[in-house]
């Protein structure tokens, strides 16, 4: 019996931050049940895996196979199933990030192991096995009970803080006979130096109040000062002022940063649904009646073209 956590590795070979959260979650879950935490790394990794022991994992299965260089959910699922069997995993943990969303459901169907996708807390094991997750796009939570002997949890990014202590993990080579992937990755477009939105601790977001894409410079300056990711509301993405991947809200992405700064966004219920798990919300809007103020922790009623540059300056001033 053990908890098995999937280590998601970025294209540059580094371990994704969301995976560190999943490892911390896996370790605390294992402690709660009095069992061991193990993990598995499938893609090539440039980091020293044994150092991940500081997140509480004791053993890491490392799969070295050139065919598994790029993520293919179908092939990775078979490898995960093989590792799960060998390790005797009773709980398998993923991050509910892009790859986790492809892999966890497949593994669930393959193993007939119940899945809770988007968990926000450790399971309640006092009576059965129940996991809290966000539902109705952030408007509510549901406690989901898993009925099967093997359980799969994918952890919502930014819902669980990473905790590092001391420790070194034992690395075990795992030889997997992998099928030839049916998906060929031809290229990856990634803007280096940018904070990925889903993983960002601070997000600066703009709405129609910005009046046009040419005015985004003031938000970019603010985001740079805060090491924040940029986001936008639906009308902004629909008007192609900003790329679709920056759209947060009910039909865009759901995020849960520590700090969300909404600039020129009125705060329609569909937008709030995607951001209301943010720990602290700051709203800057010239309309004191904007519904977003009701969901905010701090607000400034004022002209954003005046307030935002001043805010950037105030941050620079220390």
């Amino acid at each position: 019996m053990c908890v098995l956590t999937f280590i998601d590795i970025a294209e540059d070979g580094s371990v994704k931050k969301s995976s560190l959260e999943a490892l911390t979650y896996g370790a605390q879950l294992a402690k709660q049940s009095g069992i061991e935490t193990q993990a598995v790394a499938i893609a090539p990794v440039t980091e020293e895996l044994s150092a991940l022991g500081k997140y509480g994992v004791t053993k890491i299965y490392q799969v070295n196979n050139e065919a598994l260089k790029h993520f293919d959910a179908q092939v990775y699922t078979k490898v995960m199933a093989a590792v799960a069997e060998q390790s005797g995993a009773t709980v398998i943990v993923f991050s509910n990030n892009a790859n986790g969303k492809a892999l966890a459901p497949r593994l669930s169907a393959r193993l007939k192991a119940g899945l809770v996708a988007g968990a926000v807390a450790l399971p309640n094991i006092t009576n059965g096995f129940t996991v809290k997750k966000s539902v109705f796009s952030g408007k509510a939570f549901a406690d989901v009970s898993i009925h099967t002997p093997v359980k799969i949890i994918s952890l919502q990014p930014n819902a669980f803080k990473t905790e590092a202590g001391e420790g070194t993990a034992e690395i075990v080579a795992f030889s997997a006979t992998a099928d030839v992937p049916k998906i060929t990755v031809t290229h990856i477009n990634k803007q280096s130096g940018e904070v990925p939105l889903a993983e960002a601790e601070i997000v600066v977001s703009g709405g129609r109040g910005l009046k046009g894409p040419e005015n985004w410079g003031i938000l970019e300056d603010l985001a740079k000062e805060l090491h924040a990711a940029l986001a936008c509301s639906r009308p902004v993405a629909d008007a192609h002022w900003r790329p679709h991947n920056e759209h947060v809200g009910q039909t865009g992405g759901a995020i849960a940063p520590n700090l969300y700064i909404a600039v020129g966004i009125s705060g329609a219920i569909q937008h709030l649904a995607g951001v209301n798990r943010s720990k602290v919300i700051v709203v800057i809007n010239k309309d004191p009646e904007a519904p977003f103020f009701k969901a905010a922790d701090y607000g400034i009623v004022g002209d954003l073209f005046d307030v935002v540059p001043k805010l950037t300056e105030a941050l620079k001033a220390g």
Partner: peptide, 24 residues
């Protein structure tokens, strides 16, 4: 393989603290 046993609503925010636009 799973079922929902209970729902809950997120805690209500304590109210917004407004800051003067001339004092960012």
């Amino acid at each position: 393989l799973t079922s929902i046993t209970a729902f809950s609503l997120p805690p209500v925010k304590g109210g917004v603290k407004l800051i003067d636009p001339d004092n960012v």
